[in-house]
Computed example of a mutant assay.
Amino acid sequence: MSEERDTRIAIIGIVVENLSKFYLVNAILHEYSKLFVGRMGIPYKEREISVITLIAEGTNDEISAVTGKLGRVEGVSVKAMLTKVK
């Protein structure tokens, strides 16, 4: 990513409690895939949830857009932590 765009590094945590909505989560992640540097997904079978962590680089608006879309999916919780340094 270009520093000209005023980008930041972010850690995004996603918990998918409604596994029937997993296809929507993946569709959103695919839509914003250019932002992601790394992804780790862990199915937590005992709890019937899935946990995804992402490392992203993007503008505040881009990070907010992806987390906002994910947060509007029923049964999905998402939080982002951004670096202070641009």
Rank of each mutant, 00 (worst) to 15 (best):
R47Q: 12
L54Q: 07
M81C: 08
K34T: 05
I12R: 05
G75E: 04
E46T: 06
I52H: 10
G41Q: 11
I63Q: 06
I9D: 00
S20I: 04
S64W: 03
I28K: 11
A80D: 13
L70Q: 00
I14M: 09
I52T: 10
L35V: 06
S77H: 11
I49H: 02
I42T: 10
K86Y: 09
N26T: 06
R39H: 01
E31L: 00
K45D: 07
E3H: 14
G71K: 07
G75K: 03
T59E: 06
P43I: 07
K21D: 01
T7N: 14
I28A: 12
L35K: 03
F36P: 06
A56P: 10
E62V: 05
D61R: 12
G13I: 09
T59M: 01
G71L: 05
T67P: 12
A65F: 07
K34A: 09
A56N: 10
A65R: 14
E57P: 00
Y44M: 04
L82M: 15
E4M: 12
T83M: 06
G58R: 03
N60T: 15
G41M: 02
K69S: 04
G68E: 02
L29F: 08
G68V: 04
S77R: 15
A65I: 02
R72V: 01
V16L: 04
T67G: 11
S50M: 10
N18A: 11
F36D: 01
T53M: 13
E57D: 05
E4F: 07
Y32H: 15
L82Y: 00
M81E: 06
I12D: 09
V51C: 03
G38T: 07
L70T: 03
I11N: 01
E17Y: 09
V73H: 08
V73K: 10
N18K: 14
K86L: 06
G41D: 03
M40S: 09
E62G: 04
K21C: 06
E17P: 02
T7E: 12
S2T: 08
I12T: 12
K45M: 05
E3F: 02
T7A: 08
F22W: 00
I12S: 06
V25W: 00
I14S: 03
L82R: 13
M1H: 13
S50P: 00
V25T: 03
M1N: 02
I9P: 02
L19M: 14
G58H: 00
Y32M: 02
K34I: 00
K86E: 10
N18L: 03
D6Q: 13
L29D: 10
I49E: 08
R72A: 14
K79L: 13
S2L: 09
T59F: 01
E3D: 13
T67E: 12
S33R: 15
G58F: 08
Y23R: 07
E3G: 11
L35M: 14
N60K: 14
L54T: 07
K69H: 09
I11W: 06
V85T: 10
I11D: 01
